[in-house]
Design a binder for these strands. Sequence first.
DNA 1: CGGTATCCCCGTCGATACTG
DNA 2: CAGTATCGACGGGGATACCG
Lengths: 227, 227
Amino acid sequence: MGAPYHQFCPVSKAMELLDERWTMLVVRELVMGSERFNDLRRGLPRMSPTLLSRRLQQLERAGIVERTADGGDVRYRLTEAGEELRPVVEAVGAWGTRWIGELGDVDLDPKLLVWDMHRSVDVAAIPEGRTVVQLQFPDAPRGQRDWWLVITADETDVCDVDPGFDVNVSISSSLHTLTSVWRGDLEWGAAVKSGSLQVDGPAPLRRAVPEWFTLSVFAGVPRPAIR
Amino acid sequence: MGAPYHQFCPVSKAMELLDERWTMLVVRELVMGSERFNDLRRGLPRMSPTLLSRRLQQLERAGIVERTADGGDVRYRLTEAGEELRPVVEAVGAWGTRWIGELGDVDLDPKLLVWDMHRSVDVAAIPEGRTVVQLQFPDAPRGQRDWWLVITADETDVCDVDPGFDVNVSISSSLHTLTSVWRGDLEWGAAVKSGSLQVDGPAPLRRAVPEWFTLSVFAGVPRPAIR
DNA sequence: CGGTATCCCCGTCGATACTG
DNA sequence: CAGTATCGACGGGGATACCG
């Protein structure tokens, strides 16, 4: 817990827990369904493992997270109280979507983008068998330009080295463009049309690929009217 | 703004602004209707004026607050973006109400309680003319035990010295009891019955006084079922 | 009323390395 | 995979005084 505010208002009491750096993002990852320490880390790559560990302990003490260890299989799950933070995360995210449109270059991160996209794969829309989507970000730092999503009915794997399978669809885009599409700031079709996002592969798959990803949960938030 | 998270997620971008200490409480005060620097201070008595000033400037830069100075009359008001933080504050407060029931003695503060109550006076329920409610907290620190609310149709004044008017109703309560009633953790009737809250004055006014205050906006939040 | 100026401390966080 | 250990810097924020 953070420093106390010495106020009885429930907003103050809640924020004593929630306003520490990273805490809300840890909750966000849990709300998104990550349960394991290293999965949480992948969604929070700039957070040190020490701090993640401390935050998880704090959340556990606060009754928001339950840690279970079944043998070596450690899981962090939201309790009922934690699950009720979902509306808070949603309200914050909706507000951020509407009022913080501009992204700086430092906000762009191919690791995070691919990790997020892998979580939003709509298996129902994916062809039978194994589907391999290659992602290329020519403007990303060396070593973070090439990614592969290996999608089956059971799971989606993220690879930063060529897994060796045949690629079904290859997407090449600037980091900013695909991030904008993911966030719902830019439509897929507009990105393709402008040339900043290219899709390679058989025509039926090229047409289908936008359906394969449900995008960010906030992509559908209506934006403020232009004034 | 706080330190950047280097994430494109709208939750991260929003929390860069909102997770700094005190920021959400400043927004809460603005949502509750305070507009002037010293009114904000009364709702945030443990916050230094320097820090309040800095937070207001940050919120202004972020497009959440608009500062207007009409002569010497300075006002801080929420912009449209700021007004849309109301659902965030409400979600946080509702969560806190449900899941952080226990208050420590350090959370109790007569200044704050009286200030909050003065904002929740339901003028429609108050008798015509001037109504003076005396509040007494025998267990509060010296100098913070006696308060008076001077209520007219136009405004409610908070006094920590006897304003000299005849008192219509006098309420005596432990700090914890009246705070609990205010928060909706304890019903007025139950507090009276238990003897920890006493009301003095003419019988009709004694019966009417619970209607004079609408209590905390979170008082009506349903509590989790006991398990 | 509506703020600034200053000062110093302490705690948080970041970075890195390492372990069962 | 799931964390701990260590350490240093920095800067946020608390306290207090003061000003227009």
